[in-house]
């Protein structure tokens, strides 16, 4: 059986939303520890979009974004990607490096590395929540980072989704620290067979 994202029922979507919630909650805790500040988050939104609409998220196909990609191996295989807009990434790095929040002068090599680590920790904590929840072994690889047009970065998970259907499923998460909001999108892209494994482990398909 192949999972078709368009055919997911409400229960299955709820479960995916809940994974997003727990994963992002874990990620927020990790972020709070890194920044040594209180970090709040909104309830993540599970979104299913057609390819044509995908590039319109995050401010349009040509807006500059940061994508952090990790390979996933273990009981499920696939990829996880965390995408932040350029501004949000700068804010995060500024917080982490104790710089003024509105200092926008691009990234130094050290800051770039810090950003990669933020992505690593966020995606890692997301995956460990998923691992606990499903009792599966889920291992992330070292992260890779790219800064480019949103459309180009998003094409990477979109192509993976393209192999099974015509829609993309992702989880939008909003982190807040004081009055500063940082919106990030998680794309969990299991390989075709792993979708089934994942939903089975969560008890929503038999």
């Amino acid at each position: 059986m192949t999972i078709n994202i368009n055919d997911l029922n409400n229960l299955q979507l709820d479960v995916l939303r809940e994974i997003g919630n727990i994963g992002a909650g874990n990620a927020a805790t990790a972020l709070a520890k890194m920044l040594n500040k209180k970090v709040d988050m909104d309830i993540p939104k599970v979104k299913i979009l057609e390819f044509k609409e995908v590039t319109d998220i995050l401010g349009g196909a040509e807006s500059q974004v940061i994508g952090i990609l990790l390979n996933v191996t273990g009981d499920i295989t696939g990829n996880i990607m965390f995408i932040l807009d350029y501004f949000a990434a700068q804010v995060l790095v500024n917080m982490l490096m104790y710089k003024p929040i509105n200092d926008f002068n691009g990234f130094s090599e050290l800051e770039f590395s810090a950003l990669k680590e933020i992505g690593n920790i966020l995606a890692g904590s997301y995956l460990s929540a998923l691992s606990c929840l499903t009792n599966m072994k889920i291992l992330p690889s070292v992260p890779d980072i790219a800064i480019d047009m949103a459309g180009a970065i998003l094409s990477v998970p979109a192509i993976e989704f393209g192999k099974i259907g015509d829609t993309v499923l992702y989880i939008e998460t909003e982190f807040c620290e004081g009055s500063t909001k940082v919106v990030g999108d998680f794309f969990l892209v299991p390989d075709i067979d792993s979708y089934e494994t994942l939903l089975k482990a969560l008890g929503v398909i038999s």
Partner: peptide, 22 residues
């Protein structure tokens, strides 16, 4: 758009934004 195609007569411009691996 992504996974999309179109044609046009003269005068016209066709554009696609943010090609990555596509």
């Amino acid at each position: 758009g992504m996974a999309d195609l179109n044609v046009s007569c003269h005068p016209g411009v066709l554009t696609t934004l943010g090609l990555g691996s596509c």
